[in-house]
Simulated scan of single mutants.
Amino acid sequence: MENGIIQQIDYLLKQLFLGTPLYKWALALIVFLLFLLFRKLFTVIVLGIIRKFVSRTKTTLDDKLLKVIINPVRFLFIVFGLWFAINILGAEDEILNHFIKSLFIITVFWMIYNAVIIFQTNFYTFAEKFGKDLSKELGNFFIKSAKIFIFILGLVAVLQEWGIDVTAFIASLGLGGLAFALAAKDTVANLFGGLTILADKSLKIGDWIKVGSVEGIVEDLGIRTTKIRTFEKSLITVPNSYIANNPIENFSRRNNRRIKMTIGLVYDTPGDVVKKIVEDIRNMLHEHPRISKDLITLVFFDKFGDSSLDIFIYTFTDTANWTEYMAIKEDVNLKIIEIVEKNGSAFAYPSQSIYIEKVPEKLVFYDPDREN
């Protein structure tokens, strides 16, 4: 009976599936699962020991290198498992060989890509040599450029593995290549626009700027676009070529904010009172602790308005911060109200006075309902 069962199992395992005996499929599956088990043991035991060792060293370089290789090495167990399983199945197919080799290439470039991410602080340190003000923007530019370069290089290596001559392929595009170049024209313009922005140091992340109709805080300065967060909390992506070719108003680069206003006094205010109000406002601004003493301050009786005597006020605060500016402006406004009221005058509002030179002695009113 036992021999019969063995014979049946032997017969079953020798059955073919996709031209390969079932026992080879079973053996290939077992080998692949063993590599998954080795991967788990490597992660828990070997990497655990390595982590403890590198954590005791004084340098952080080994910690970073471990982060660079840990996931790609774990992925290699899957690649080797597939490779051994394919060999067991006897599927020595050219496509499968290219596929396995492509996975090895991807793993190598994965490590290089991780190195860019893990060592990005070094990119920022290198960028500081070109200026601390733009170290973050230049660092981001270097990192993104390196990522794109590694991705393109890895893609070319994989294509070469599959027998695709990239150089010949690009050269054979002909009109298609010309169309591609024309389509990429804007991308190239945006790339050089980003380089121009960095070279001019016209803005950096965190600046409050206005370009055309777009106004807000710069959140990201990329290779192709710049992201601006508006005060309505919308995120606007602006092409770098547009920023490079348009005037940039950078509010964060100024140290002061302007107060400019015209106040109107009622017309029955005597001339000497108007003069006293002007002098009091001028003295108040000169003595105000938050009004800039280095910039011009103007207070003058400006003109005879339609319904008021207009006083022109022009000065600057000592800060560009919006909240502080509004608090200073409020304080100045309240002090102007006190000065006007203290001098016995009042603020005018639009009004008209009608003077009738002579009233008729007898007024005749037309009544349409009255009988003739």
Score class of each variant (00 low, 15 high):
residue 173 L to W: 15
residue 175 L to H: 07
residue 176 G to N: 15
residue 179 A to P: 12
residue 180 F to W: 14
residue 181 A to T: 10
residue 181 A to D: 12
residue 182 L to R: 12
residue 182 L to P: 11
residue 183 A to N: 13
residue 184 A to P: 06
residue 186 D to W: 14
residue 187 T to S: 15
residue 191 L to E: 05
residue 192 F to W: 15
residue 195 L to D: 09
residue 195 L to H: 06
residue 195 L to V: 15
residue 196 T to D: 14
residue 196 T to H: 14
residue 196 T to G: 09
residue 197 I to A: 08
residue 197 I to E: 13
residue 197 I to V: 14
residue 201 K to A: 11
residue 202 S to M: 04
residue 204 K to N: 12
residue 205 I to E: 15
residue 206 G to N: 01
residue 207 D to L: 04
residue 208 W to Y: 11
residue 212 G to R: 02
residue 212 G to I: 02
residue 216 G to E: 02
residue 218 V to N: 05
residue 220 D to H: 11
residue 220 D to V: 00
residue 221 L to F: 04
residue 222 G to S: 06
residue 222 G to V: 00
residue 223 I to S: 03
residue 223 I to V: 14
residue 223 I to M: 11
residue 224 R to Y: 03
residue 229 R to F: 01
residue 229 R to A: 02
residue 229 R to T: 03
residue 229 R to P: 01
residue 230 T to K: 05
residue 230 T to S: 09
residue 231 F to H: 06
residue 232 E to Y: 00
residue 233 K to A: 08
residue 234 S to Q: 05
residue 234 S to G: 03
residue 234 S to A: 08
residue 235 L to M: 13
residue 236 I to A: 01
residue 236 I to W: 00
residue 237 T to N: 07
residue 237 T to I: 08
residue 237 T to H: 02
residue 237 T to L: 04
residue 238 V to L: 13
residue 238 V to S: 02
residue 240 N to M: 03
residue 240 N to R: 06
residue 242 Y to H: 10
residue 243 I to S: 07
residue 246 N to C: 03
residue 250 N to H: 11
residue 252 S to C: 11
residue 254 R to T: 14
residue 255 N to Y: 04
residue 257 R to T: 12
residue 260 K to V: 10
residue 260 K to A: 14
residue 261 M to G: 05
residue 261 M to H: 01
residue 263 I to C: 10
residue 263 I to Y: 13
residue 265 L to Q: 05
residue 267 Y to T: 12
residue 268 D to W: 11
residue 271 G to M: 09
residue 272 D to R: 04
residue 272 D to V: 04
residue 272 D to I: 04
residue 273 V to F: 01
residue 274 V to D: 02
residue 274 V to F: 00
residue 274 V to H: 02
residue 274 V to A: 07
residue 276 K to P: 00
residue 276 K to E: 15
residue 277 I to D: 06
residue 277 I to S: 07
residue 278 V to C: 03
residue 278 V to Q: 15
residue 279 E to M: 01
residue 281 I to Q: 05
residue 282 R to H: 05
residue 282 R to P: 00
residue 282 R to K: 10
